[in-house]
Computed example of a mutant assay.
Amino acid sequence: MNKKPSVLLIGATGYLGSYLLKELVKQNYSVRVVVRNPQKLPQVENYSYEVVEGEVTRPSTIENCCKDIDVVMSTVGITRQKDGLSYMDVDYQANVNVLEEAKRSNVKKFIYVSVLKGDKMKGVKLCAAKEKFVDELRHSGLDYTIIRPTGFFSDMTEFYQMTKRGRVYLFGNGQTKMNPIHGRDLAGVCVSAIDKSEAEIKVGGPEVLTLNEIAYLAFSASNKESKITHIPDWIRLAILKITKTFTSNKTYGPIEFFLTFIGLDNMTAPKYGQHTLEEYFNSLNQ
């Protein structure tokens, strides 16, 4: 029987990373994680894995983190810029720091989770940082796989929060299509990529839905009457310009990504998984 490769997981305390850690140990991989705060790691009962305390934004704290590692898997990135760190500091440079360690230790493969159509949104600061790292990875000399999910179920939580306040606001006509994916399903895709040769994997959840349909599912889960207000798309574009002019990069970054993302006509990818958004919204109500 061939021995399974050893895996270094970066970002194990995040939404996707926590599912990845559980999936890796469930499939009996030898796992090492690098985390700033081990207390934030998810509970993984009856399994053991190695924990290294370090900050990927500080290279001196992660020296030799890739020693005896076959595969590096990174979900590192920030949605909201905090602690004085920018997207370039984390989504780009922190991953470069890990990549340099991987090259020094002769790691066989690097798996990185980016975003669907990130290469088409390089004008967006978050995507620019992610895609700059993708370019570094492509020229690293290592085998690699870029995972491009449509969006996480956790990103859809805002729809549910709006229904609890009584109304969902959507830009445009609400017909933009997407198929977000549950973290558990996406973790399975990432782990399966260890043994695959694809350089890039685009993936979404099992259901393609419009933004209107997502809103209706959220209203149903929260037991509220459906009330949707459609805001003209020119207002979205105006908000982008105004926030860029009058807010800090820290504030503007998440707004820029969100407003650009929802302005796309289609954010769908090949269907995968079993978990539905309806189940997720119902779990929030419980």
Rank of each mutant, 00 (worst) to 15 (best):
R58G: 03
H182N: 04
V191H: 00
R148N: 15
V56K: 04
V208R: 02
S30A: 15
K26N: 08
T268M: 03
R104Y: 05
F281H: 12
A238P: 00
K271W: 01
I147W: 05
L170G: 03
V208Q: 03
K202M: 06
D195N: 14
N64I: 07
V96P: 09
V33P: 01
E101M: 12
A269Y: 03
T245F: 13
R138K: 15
V51Y: 06
V34M: 02
N249A: 00
R138P: 00
Y92V: 07
V25H: 02
D155S: 12
L284E: 13
N2Q: 06
G205D: 14
I262N: 02
V189G: 03
L99M: 15
E63C: 02
N2K: 07
D195Q: 11
I10P: 01
K122C: 04
G172P: 06
G205A: 13
Y92P: 06
L99Y: 15
F133N: 03
R236F: 07
M1R: 10
R167W: 10
G253W: 06
T57A: 07
A128R: 09
D83E: 01
V115W: 15
N212Y: 13
A199N: 06
N173W: 09
M267L: 14
G204M: 05
V98M: 14
L277A: 12
D89V: 03
I231F: 13
V76R: 04
V71A: 06
P38V: 12
I262P: 01
L21G: 05
T243H: 08
I239M: 13
F133Y: 14
P149F: 15
S114F: 14
G273N: 08
C190P: 01
K241C: 01
R58F: 08
K3L: 07
L85R: 00
R167M: 06
G188S: 07
S220E: 15
K196E: 13
T276E: 14
M73A: 10
T247C: 05
T260M: 00
V34E: 05
I231C: 04
F153R: 08
C66K: 12
R36E: 08
F153N: 08
K177W: 05
F246L: 02
V168P: 00
E279T: 10
I214T: 11
S114V: 09
T229S: 08
T79L: 15
E279H: 10
V124N: 01
I146K: 04
F258V: 02
G84A: 08
T163E: 12
L237G: 01
M162E: 02
E158W: 05
K122P: 00
Y49K: 00
N249E: 03
Q274H: 11
K26A: 11
P180K: 11
K250E: 02
V56G: 11
T229P: 00
G174M: 14
P42N: 07
E256G: 08
G11N: 07
P42Y: 11
N266F: 10
K67T: 10
S226C: 11
L137A: 08
E279S: 09
K4C: 08
Q286T: 13
F246I: 01
S140C: 11
I69Y: 14
K109Q: 02
K3P: 00
G54I: 08
I228L: 06
S220T: 15
K117Y: 15
E279K: 12
I10S: 07
T243R: 10
V96N: 10
